[in-house]
């Protein structure tokens, strides 16, 4: 008993205790707000989820007051738009990031970094305007070409299009998943590019020089040093862009004409997304309709959550991740 180690205690003093209390209080407040948001979403969504059960995931229609509602159509639409966006944005982002970190003259480099970062801060409604008033008209011939020559691939088929009739109405090609996807792609490309550029520029100079010393061309050096080193950052940047694309509202809402059936044809008019569904239906929703919208919002949140966490864990585990925090 007498040999028990003495308990060491340092009195931090009153100001320090107050500081710790305030800091803890701030952390607790933020935690409370965040849990309140999550908990409230879950609580309100529960009403709709318990009524719909598993059919919430398989029903395509959205008529909560008639008891027929589900997120099959909007979820597929959201994922399709995000996938189109990622398919367009990732090559642009990788190319842009490689150009800035490897090819651009040093003086231009700093300007380009600022420009890309600034682009990432441009409000999404601006991209939506561009898509609605400019891009949709420009893509029509290309959409028609895709539907005509690649229409045998189910993804590119357009129902109601008649390639042999040159005067056929072109409205079957507007407001499509493709247009929304490209608009979202421009939105997320700078974000992904910024992450990738950061990681590429941290590839160790010694290894670069080693590759050159072994006689590699510049592309050989990029392929054997920069890209393997930056793999984590590339995947992380892509996932980050994907998370942003999934949650994008206004750019998509301005462009698509919503349909409530699973629409696989990306070139055909009619698309849907969870965020656009909420923006479209929140005003007229009844008590139960709000609950159903909450459930849809919760599903969207869960999806972006999974994508974001996957992104950060991939980046943290990769070699380049330690520095890309």
């Amino acid at each position: 008993m007498r040999d028990a180690p003495r308990r060491l205690y340092a009195d931090p003093g009153l100001p320090d205790r107050v500081f710790r209390g305030v800091a803890r209080g701030g952390g607790g407040l933020v935690l409370a707000v965040m849990l309140l948001v999550g908990g409230f979403l879950l609580y309100r969504a529960w009403q709709a989820l318990s009524r719909a059960g598993w059919s919430f995931l398989t029903t395509e229609a959205w008529e909560p007051d008639a008891g027929r509602f589900g997120i099959a159509a909007v979820l597929v639409g959201t994922v399709l738009i995000a996938l189109v966006a990622v398919a367009v944005a990732v090559p642009l982002a990788v190319g842009g990031a490689l150009y800035i970190s490897e090819y651009a003259p040093p003086r231009l480099r700093r300007t380009l970094i600022s420009v890309v970062d600034l682009m990432a801060a441009v409000p999404s409604v601006v991209y939506g305007l561009w898509g609605l008033f400019f891009f949709e008209g420009q893509i029509l011939p290309t959409a028609r070409w895709i539907a005509t020559y690649l229409g045998w691939i189910p993804l590119f088929r357009v129902d109601g299009a008649d390639p042999s009739d040159p005067l056929a109405p072109e409205s079957v090609y507007t407001s499509s998943t493709l247009v929304a996807g490209v608009v979202v792609a421009l939105m997320v490309a700078p974000i992904a590019c910024s992450v990738m550029r950061e990681v590429f520029s941290q590839a160790p100079a010694g290894e670069r020089e080693g590759a050159y010393a072994l006689g590699a061309t510049r592309w050989g050096m990029i392929r054997s040093v920069v890209l393997p080193f930056g793999k984590g950052g590339m995947i992380g940047g892509t996932m980050l862009g994907l998370g942003r694309a999934l949650g994008e509202t206004i750019g998509v809402y301005l462009i698509i004409s919503p349909v409530f059936e699973i629409q696989w044809h990306v070139v055909q008019s009619g698309a849907s997304s969870v965020a656009a569904l909420i923006a479209l239906r929140y005003g007229e929703a009844s008590e139960f309709g709000m609950s159903a919208l909450m459930a849809a919002g919760l599903a969207l949140f869960l999806m972006t959550l999974v994508v974001n966490f996957a992104a950060s864990s991939i980046v943290a585990r990769s070699r380049s991740g330690a520095a890309s925090e």
Partner: peptide, 26 residues
């Protein structure tokens, strides 16, 4: 190497020009 240089530079150019165009268009 040359081909990759051209592809990378044009992708970078496309990105900056497309984004710049969105702003200028507005």
């Amino acid at each position: 190497d040359r081909l990759a240089a051209v592809v990378v530079q044009s992708l970078g150019l496309v990105m900056v020009v497309a984004l710049g165009f969105v702003v200028v268009f507005t």
